[in-house]
Design a protein around this nucleic acid. Structure first.
Lengths: 215, 215
DNA sequence: CCTACCGATCGGTAGG
DNA sequence: CCTACCGATCGGTAGG
């Protein structure tokens, strides 16, 4: 067998294993958080022995950062696509954003900020902050900026809400939504059966609660 | 020395130690989360040896629950007092709530929900959910209900926001506010120097972002 | 309220 | 990509 072919096959197997590890790590880290996930849990979930993780990644934190990076890149594509759908109005686009975040980026904002502050080294912190800004914050913020531009949202210097603050509110509100899917009519502390939390949250953020506008 | 006096002194010392442990545990658990705090960290911070924790509390989780219970009780007193200040309007009362939460209950909602879901046994989960509902959610919700009653907020059956959802949004928005106090002009991803995040968040939630009200 | 210590598990490495 | 294993640290206990 020619050397090139053997190498190629080997590289492909190795790459598949790497992807399996990343996929398992993503599910676990997003669901349980950095600290609660052990390297052995990742190994078991991806069908390899634990020391093999250290062949593909320098350490646990490097694996975590790579998971965040892959997820952020996918997030950026999806959110920028939603933001560009100018034929849909602002509430519709925001509902799409929230539904996407609920489906895929099931990470809790509070957990994310906590890990940035306490669990990660400065280098990882910087890298993740940058990913977060460009892949998640920026696309969502552009929707709010667009809303101001078309006159649907009040400008921040006329009693409106700064797009950055609006993004903060939306991301926090999206963080603890009940799980999606049929049969998950989880009537919890917050949510009534039969209501769509996504629509309710978006309407609340856009139209507020007061009977009249300020001034 | 009479037996009663000796006993009393001993009980007092023991009670002081117990309180010192609780105080240290509260600071640590609120700042770092249940999992990231070790029993040795609590012991060091309260000036006792680690095994002594197990004389005053059954285990780490019992200590955590007691911290939550004490904090929730104080929270209930403070929030009910704020809710009862009918001479102040709704936005003023909500600002007081957020400032109180930022000062004392510096716990992140996302972290709290995560711990309820993943780190605690069912019994502790039930107890904490009950505390959370009665001591934090209920008082805040009553302010929103009051706002509807006096005609300042739209009723939920007339395009308004249900008080429960409003409470959810406020608590999530309050969770990741920058630290308080002078000199902490932390210009972060979200907050500009010189702006008061509390006032901005409350105004955003009450008046929304749109140029006109729905329908 | 202490010293001494337990078994379990962690992230990571040696050596092949 | 594996087996074997390391030092550190965890929550908790024994025994006084």
């Amino acid at each position: 067998m020619p050397r090139g072919r053997a190498r190629s096959t080997q590289r492909s197997d190795s790459e598949e294993t790497r992807q399996a590890i990343l996929k398992a790590a993503q599910d676990l880290f997003m669901e349980r958080g950095y600290r609660a996930v052990t390297t052995r849990m990742v190994a078991d979930a991806s069908g390899v022995r634990q020391p093999l993780l250290y062949y593909h990644f320098a350490d646990k934190e490097a694996l975590y950062l790579e998971v965040q990076r892959e997820q952020a890149m996918a997030c950026r594509v999806a959110l920028e696509r939603i933001a560009a759908r100018k034929h849909e109005n602002i509430p519709e686009r925001l509902c799409h954003v929230m539904r996407y975040l609920r489906r895929s980026h099931q990470q809790n904002m509070g957990m994310l900020f906590h890990e940035l502050k306490h669990e990660l080294t400065p280098a990882t912190r910087v890298a993740m902050s940058e990913l977060f800004r460009t892949c998640i914050v920026a696309p969502i913020m552009s929707i709010f900026e667009d809303g101001v531009r078309v006159g649907f949202l009040r400008p921040s210097d006329e009693g409106g809400v700064a797009p950055r603050l609006a993004t903060y509110l939306l991301l926090n509100a999206a963080s603890n939504l009940p799980d999606d899917g049929p049969g998950s009519g989880a009537a919890s502390v917050w949510w009534e059966e039969g209501h769509d939390p996504v629509v309710e949250v978006v309407n609340a953020l856009i139209y507020g609660m007061a009977t009249r506008l300020p001034i």
